[in-house]
Computed example of a mutant assay.
Amino acid sequence: MTQKMPPPKYLALFMLIMLPTMTGYMAWEARTVDVTVLEIDGAPEGIVYITDPHVKASNIDHVREVIGEVNRLNPSLVLIGGDFTTGDESDFASQSVWRSLNAPAYAVLGNHDYRVGTDGPSGLERVLAVRASADVTATGYDLSALKDGSADTVFADELAAVLEENGVHVLRNDYVRVPVGGKEVVVVGLDDGWAGMADPPDIPASDAFTVYLIHEPSCRADWDADLILAGHTHGGQFLFPVIEQLNDHGAIELAGMFETNGTPTYISRGVCSASVAGVDLRFNCRPEIVLINPTEEQLRAIGGSS
């Protein structure tokens, strides 16, 4: 027996009813932050990683809430993966929000912080440029082909200075040795790849746990690292089932843990969202705070927030 489809007018009515509900749910999800726990062999306890805050007037309360949750976890170290801005700013007054972080913080800049690849067409150009003309091997790493003069280095320099004033130490092709819980962590921070500014520093050999902090995951290489942390993708932001399956099987890399030549790379979903018609929306892809090797105290704090 042939089943009749509902008349188009009923389908349209159904869509009109469901659209506000769905939009409301996606707006709620964009403001609901998960704490994702990573157990990484050899890493010190209690490191927090966040990325892609894109601080602006419409989300600054959300960023404050994220920072409040980070502080509640009492981290040993905070790492931030770039895209502090939207790229549309006339000043960086909103970046004073980072003063309230209660732990040592190290960061890199992202493509929005250089005002490059910030829309669909220009972003696609950068993706293709990395694939076609960049060397992302550890021995010959070279992204100079992306250095085409479009990066706003003045904007990035001014932002980096403001972040330093507000307690966030910006690593631009540099590294730092940080004592964490009786261990030493080497944090290597690469400047933005899409801006053509990434130039990995030479790292002296050591037994310290080594983390590479980058923005675009496609710009990573087979470095001698214990962990690579990246962002940029927002986890896809709208992680519909087919896209989620492609990500889970490694056909695309939007969110989660991936392994490159034995080096684990974690791509974070970020803490803020790109706007659709002025509203931050997500689906099946909540913002996240990443917590590495949590202490018992932190596990209790997570349990208390659920």
Rank of each mutant, 00 (worst) to 15 (best):
V180D: 07
A225Y: 06
Y175H: 14
P200F: 10
S206I: 01
D224R: 06
V176P: 11
V180F: 02
P179K: 05
A230D: 03
W223T: 07
P204Q: 02
D191L: 13
V211D: 05
P217C: 00
A208D: 15
T210W: 07
D191C: 10
G235F: 02
H232Q: 05
E216Y: 06
V185R: 01
A230Y: 00
D191H: 08
C219V: 13
G182T: 08
H169R: 15
H234D: 08
V188N: 06
W194M: 10
N173P: 11
D174F: 10
H169K: 13
W194G: 06
A208N: 12
H169C: 13
Q237V: 11
G231W: 05
T210Y: 00
E184P: 02
A208L: 05
V176Y: 07
V178Y: 10
F209G: 04
G235P: 02
I228V: 14
A198P: 11
R177A: 15
D224H: 08
F209Q: 03
I214L: 14
V180H: 07
D224N: 14
I203W: 06
R220D: 15
A198Y: 12
P179T: 06
D199F: 07
A198S: 14
V186A: 09
V187L: 03
D222M: 00
W223G: 12
T210P: 07
E184F: 03
H169M: 12
A225W: 07
L171V: 03
P179S: 09
G181Q: 12
Y212H: 13
G235R: 02
L227V: 01
G235C: 01
G236C: 04
D202N: 10
G236F: 04
V188I: 13
A230H: 00
S218L: 15
D174Y: 02
P217H: 01
E184A: 12
D192N: 02
V186K: 01
G236H: 04
D226N: 11
S218W: 07
W194V: 05
R220K: 13
Y175G: 07
E216Q: 15
H215G: 10
E184C: 08
G182E: 11
C219E: 12
T233C: 09
G193I: 14
N173F: 12
D207A: 11
K183M: 14
E184Y: 09
L171E: 07
A198N: 11
L229N: 08
Y212R: 01
N173R: 14
D207R: 11
G182D: 06
T210H: 02
Y175E: 08
M197N: 13
G231A: 03
A221Q: 05
T210Q: 10
V186D: 14
L171N: 06
A225S: 04
D202Q: 11
D174I: 07
R172C: 13
Q237S: 08
A221I: 02
D192H: 03
S206R: 03
D199W: 06
D174R: 12
R172W: 12
D174S: 15
P217F: 09
L190K: 01
N173T: 12
V176H: 09
G236R: 00
T233N: 07
T233M: 05
Y175D: 15
G235E: 01
V187Q: 04
G235M: 00
A230K: 00
I203F: 08
G189A: 08
G231K: 00
T233Q: 04
R172I: 13
